[in-house]
Design a protein around this nucleic acid. Structure first.
Lengths: 210, 210
DNA sequence: TAGATTGTTAATCGATTAACAATC
DNA sequence: TAGATTGTTAATCGATTAACAATC
């Protein structure tokens, strides 16, 4: 693996799509796939796929294609999906509730290890064997359960405060659903998931298309 | 407005962020803002902001900055937020439930006009004055209520079928939460909101950061 | 007028596409 | 061997950053 080379964000964001499509292809019984075929299933050019993969090594066989099982394993390792990250969801409102029930996370090797809320009605609820804890215990529980990722699903007004506590408790990554910027030390990676961007850009394009 | 020039997707995706930050600045009582200050609040360079805005016209005053109220109106028009788009959510599972309760949509001028599900327990439910209808009535209701945007929140296996019906019923845009590609005619714009991408890329970066 | 800040042009950087040699 | 398909280099395209003239 070429560790020196900086890989583009665009490439990283495509890898999960490759991974998912390969797994689906595997379920269909496919053992070998060409960049042509994979590209067709994904809506990405074959050149793009080969270039993206080449950044990490040589996974294919010339004149043959890629072995599906092997490529799944390789991409999984690149993405770190073999590490079984633990995550905590903070804020069990409508969105948090949807997130803790989202099945694809488990399929990707992520483990829901804790949930937090301020609302006494939510606290104590059991979701798939995990209990909603009061937000006061966030530092304690995150350390205790070795949680790496914090998911922010609280209102905007509390997002920064929650981020600060998550960082203080030692998480290394934050997945932020609050529609605002959050400030964290450089050692912590933030991925923003801003739902209003998608809908607004759709509005933009609809306004232009005849 | 320079209609000829193709505006980059990156620019379009930043406009909603500008819009939101400007509205918040306005709530704080700010009447004039410089690209410097706006950039600081957003985490974007001032040059980037000026370039993005310049693609649509001259909204600022040299030596002064941008009038907040005016710029909000201008960006709102560019994004088409003044058009009061109507949208329908298909699939009132955990995610669909969260979406129909998401308040920011209304604040952006989007109107939830219909909901659909196959589950008899969901059908007939009233959410904020809108009733969940059986999916059989999708064509009829979308036409009747002049719905422009369809939101797909059904399982992957049904996403394409729902997309086909939405397109058949005449929606012009689809906001797809199912983790798969959907095929539509060129005249229909699709925005994919794939939650597993965000989490996977977070996993990637965590694996690399020391 | 002097200071500030935009809008725009030029320079740089990065990502995609095209082409093709290597090789299974 | 002939056909197919990768991996990689070169060419193009697009987006960001830097610089500065215009002007409030």
């Amino acid at each position: 693996m070429k560790d020196q080379i900086i890989i583009s964000k665009a490439t990283i964001d495509r890898l999960p799509l490759y991974y998912r499509t390969l797994r689906r292809s595997q379920e269909e019984g496919l053992e070998i796939i060409s960049s042509e075929e994979l590209g067709h299933r994904l809506g990405v050019t074959p050149e793009q796929i080969r270039k993206d993969l080449a950044a990490f090594g040589q996974f294919g066989k010339k004149g043959v294609g890629y072995f599906v099982r092997e490529l799944i394993r390789n991409i999984g390792e690149i993405l770190g999906l073999d590490r079984k990250w633990s995550f905590a969801v903070v804020g069990i409102g409508h969105l948090g509730w949807a997130l803790v029930h989202y099945r694809n996370f488990k399929a990707l090797g992520f483990h829901l290890a804790a949930m937090f809320d301020v609302n006494p009605e939510k606290i104590g609820q059991d979701i798939g064997g995990v209990i909603v804890d009061p937000i006061e215990r966030i530092e304690e529980i995150i350390k205790e359960r070795n949680i790496n990722i914090g998911v922010i699903a609280v209102p905007q007004s509390q997002a920064q405060a929650v981020a600060d506590r998550l960082v203080g408790a030692g998480v290394r990554g934050i997945w932020n659903f609050a529609p605002c910027k959050i400030n964290v030390p450089e050692s912590v990676k933030v991925v923003n998931e801003d739902l209003s961007v998608g809908l607004s850009s759709l509005s933009y394009y609809l306004g232009r298309m005849l």
